[in-house]
Structures are given as structure tokens and as C-alpha cells.
Write a protein that binds this DNA or RNA. Structure first.
Lengths: 152, 152
DNA sequence: TATTGTTATACTCTATAACTATA
DNA sequence: TATAGTTATAGAGTATAACAATA
């Protein structure tokens, strides 16, 4: 059941992959620019955005898709800026939970708001269009559907 | 004209942004893994994928969204691996055009194929779904619609 | 023994500034 | 003067391996 009499041919999966590549690049470019506006690198911004709840170093390494040894340095630099702090876990003394400071909460909030205000086109989609986009992205990237709910 | 009697509420723009963040992260995770399988870093893989045509260092810096001074090192390392070479521009002797070697062409081809085969879910979308996804992504990220046609 | 986090190391990516060779 | 590319530098991200503390 074609949608219109003389429809434009659908993009090949390859073309779609190329467009997804451009969208991913545009997203990170935007994210990095917003983070830089707060004196943060991309990884520092991503890390902050993952701290909606306290998380062990190990969990951050998993979510950031990098080795645990890197997280030490990233968290060190965020700690220096007073945006996060390490808290000892009461149940397992090997674990250090990373928590946002009050200033960290504020920064995350501003970053999220600036991210959204830079994506005005996204807000102009109708409800039905957003539903469709969510559904199709969920089909194309099934691993991203069950939300661990990060921002980067 | 709602699509079904008791439809799931549409995602908020914020939820959609979060999902786009996850999709972008998943894409780069995949890209980096494929590149690593060829002994390349993410930036080296991205650079190779931009060389469907010869490009000056300056153009690469633009497309990679980084300072021109970084491209020197990236191209140096790709040159060491015999994947690209610098060619003097006949019209402007300041310009060096970066060209894929034969081995570089092969590597790019394999990387693109492995990228696609890792995105099988993408190929399972119908033509209409691919058309819709292209349209909606184009609306959400207008700057990505006119394709400079990279892969990363 | 296994796991969490850190340290040490080496390499890559990054922006800035200063330099050269062309234009 | 302006532009293309490089070099030097310093900081940040990266994986690997080895280590201490804890489980």
C-alpha cells in the first residue's frame, strides 16, 4: 500500500546509516559545545548527566563504555570542580558511590535545559511524530529502548 | 485523527532527546568497536570514512569538527599504516590532498560492511518505515539533511 | 579467589600559539 | 596580508598491567 502515487524512493539501509551517523555527530557536537560553555569536556558532561542517582565508579565505567581506570581521573577532575564527591558505600567498603554536589545538580540542570533549547526542531514535532520516531528508533536500535535514562 | 483508540502517550521532547542520546552512544560504541577490529581508533576510522574523495587537511578538520593541528597527527598515523597518503595539490602548493591508498580503500569497504552487518535491525525496516525515519530525523536535525555523505 | 578502585605507563586526541611556505 | 599545514606544548581521554583493600 504505497503512500502517494509518485513517491520518492525509500532510502537504502546504507543511506539511513549515513544519516544516523550525521545525526549522532550533530548530537555530540551540540553536547560538547554546551558542556564547554560550563568549562567541561564531553566526557565530564556525560558523566555528570549519568548521576541522576549515585553510582559506583564501576557502574560509571560501564555506562561510559570505557575502562574503570579512566573513571578515576574523570571523577578526580569533577571533584576538583566541586561538582561531585565520593561517598563510601555502607554495605560494601570496596565501593565508592559518586554523588552530585548541589553545584553539580545545578550544572546538570542547566546543561539539560541548554541541550533542549538547542534542539528546537525536536520540540516542533507533533505528538504523533514523536511517537513514530521513538518507535522507529527503538526498532533500529533495540538495545536503546529500555531506558537507563542518561542524557549523553 | 489519533492512531488507535487507547494510544500510549507520546514521548516528551525531553524523553526523545534522551533516546537520541542513547542511539548516538550506541552508534559510536559500534563504530569504535568495528574500527578497533582493524587496529584503528574512532577518529582514525572516521577520517578514513570521510575520504570517499581526496580532501585537503583543512576540509578534514572541518568535517571532523576539530582543530587543523590535530589532523596532522591523525593523518600521520594513518600514513604510517599505509592507509592514506598526502598528495600535493597542482593548483595551490599550500594544499595537501589526503587520498586513500589501495589498502585504505579495502579497509574502508570492510568497515562499512561490518558497520551495516552490525545494524541488522536497520535493514529489517520496511521501505515506508525508512522513508518516515529519514523524514523525521531530517526534521529534528535539519543541518544533517543535505548529505556531505560521510559514515561517521 | 574474586571484585573495587587506584596507580603507573604509554599512546591518542585536543586546543592554543608560533612558525613555514605559499598565495 | 591571509591561508594551508606543521610543530611545540600542555591537558584530557584511553587501554593495559600491577597493586591495595575488601569481600
Amino acid at each position: 500500500m504505497p503512500q502517494t502515487p509518485q513517491a520518492v524512493p525509500p532510502p537504502s539501509p546504507e543511506e539511513l546509516m549515513d544519516q544516523l551517523a550525521r545525526v549522532a555527530a550533530a548530537y555530540y557536537r551540540h553536547f560538547a559545545a554546551v558542556a564547554a560553555g560550563h568549562g567541561l569536556t564531553l566526557m565530564q558532561g556525560k558523566t555528570l548527566s549519568l548521576l541522576g542517582r549515585p553510582r559506583p565508579m564501576r557502574a560509571l565505567a560501564e555506562l561510559l563504555a570505557c575502562d574503570a581506570s579512566n573513571v578515576t581521573g574523570i571523577v578526580d577532575r569533577l571533584t576538583t570542580q566541586e561538582l561531585v564527591r565520593r561517598e563510601a558505600d555502607p554495605d560494601d567498603r570496596r565501593i565508592k558511590n559518586i554523588v552530585l554536589t548541589e553545584q553539580g545538580e545545578e550544572t546538570v540542570g542547566r546543561i539539560r535545559a541548554e541541550l533542549m533549547s538547542g534542539l528546537t526542531s525536536l520540540g516542533q514535532l507533533t505528538g504523533d511524530e514523536r511517537t513514530t520516531l521513538r518507535t522507529l528508533l527503538g526498532q533500529a536500535f533495540p538495545e536503546t529502548t529500555a531506558p537507563p535514562r542518561p542524557t549523553a
